[in-house]
Design a protein around this nucleic acid. Structure first.
Lengths: 200, 200
DNA sequence: CAGTTTCCATATCGCTCGGTAGATAATTAC
DNA sequence: GTAATTATCTACCGAGCGATATGGAAACTG
């Protein structure tokens, strides 16, 4: 659906590069905490350029969220392909740890930040983030149902319970990362979780 | 340090009642999400009355935080007195669940909301909340050290690791409660955590 | 009573917010 | 060449933010 030939004055900045910069701002400060001035400064463009290219703040955030899922959360899909429930948990925990302690990225999880730190004004943003979380949650439930059926667990657990449990640990890890926990701290959390994990 | 004799016109509203109302606003919307208009509306007082009685927004928040710890987090101290590590975890999880699903209170944990949802402008608020969290965390570590020494754990874990682990689950529970999880959902999370808990 | 102190209400301050108007610059279409 | 189209710039809008100045009313002391 792209126009075959571009007319008019060409854009002077790279849209993908600018969106990456915007994602970092949202990731650091949350949706409401990120002001348009913060965003334009980081993106290196002026305010009207931003509106022309991305619509408005909400639309920009959604595009940044897409980028975040595409670039930063791809490990989740791979994690579900692990052969055992323990493997799934291990990949999710380790991937989340890598993601949240990468040297160049902000700490914490954009999804957790955006769902917790959203005022009433931006409730549709919050709902959007929660909905995306529900989709991932559902996929994890289904993977755990398979693990239960395959007899992975040596402790009696139900798929929904173990999914909420693992999700809670991942969310708690994001909270601790955002609070400034070191990589060693989070690695200890991962190790402990795997030490008590009730399946092969 | 109270003035022995009150002179001048007495205050027409109840400070504790107003502070309780303010706490509910901060609990629902976070520090920055709560506007002075939100606060004065909920407290039933005018803006100058608020400033005269509580100083400024930051000071009001600290007083609300004190009230929150005193009224809502007292179960934590009691939890540490349980005879076994499992008892500590059980009381913390169940107390947190009750706290976050009470019919009349907002969902989620004020501490988590305030530490995650704080922009750069209110960083001293964030630091204050994190510091209070560190104090509680340290107390839990010491309790777990005792449990390790007393041989509570049948899986090899270290006190700091199991503390970060349990804290993460409590934080994750707060995130899920804030996201709208039902009491039954959270109860399942608690039950699963206790089902895999590695100690007596 | 007078005098003092404090509270409350209105109206406003300076500032930042998200978003935009209008003029100018750079490119393509003809 | 000229017209059309699009991006960019400066400057600005109305609204909401936290916080306050001011003035009058109310309740205390002596």
């Amino acid at each position: 659906m792209e126009t075959a030939v571009l007319r008019g004055r060409p854009r002077e900045f790279d849209v993908d590069h600018a969106l990456t910069a915007a994602l970092r701002v949202f990731w650091s400060k949350g949706y409401e905490g990120a002001s348009m001035t913060d965003l334009t400064d980081a993106m290196g463009i002026t305010r009207p350029s931003l509106y022309a290219a991305f619509g408005n703040k909400e639309s920009l955030f959604r595009k940044a969220l897409d980028l975040y899922e595409r670039e930063k959360l791809c490990y989740m899909g791979q994690a579900l392909e692990a052969p055992t429930a323990r493997g799934v948990a291990q990949r999710l925990l380790q991937g989340s740890l890598e993601n949240q302690t990468s040297r160049d990225d902000p700490r914490g999880c954009l999804g957790v930040i955006s769902s917790v730190a959203c005022g009433a004004e931006a409730d549709c943003i919050r709902q959007e983030v929660l909905e995306r979380g529900r989709i991932a949650h559902q996929a994890l439930i289904e993977r755990m149902e398979r693990a239960v059926a395959e007899g992975d667990f040596h402790t009696p657990v139900d798929a929904e319970g173990i999914t909420k449990y693992l999700t809670a640990i991942l969310q708690g890890m994001a909270v601790q990362a955002g609070a400034g926990a070191s990589r060693e701290d989070l690695q200890r959390l991962v190790d402990t979780t795997l030490a008590v994990w009730p399946s092969r």
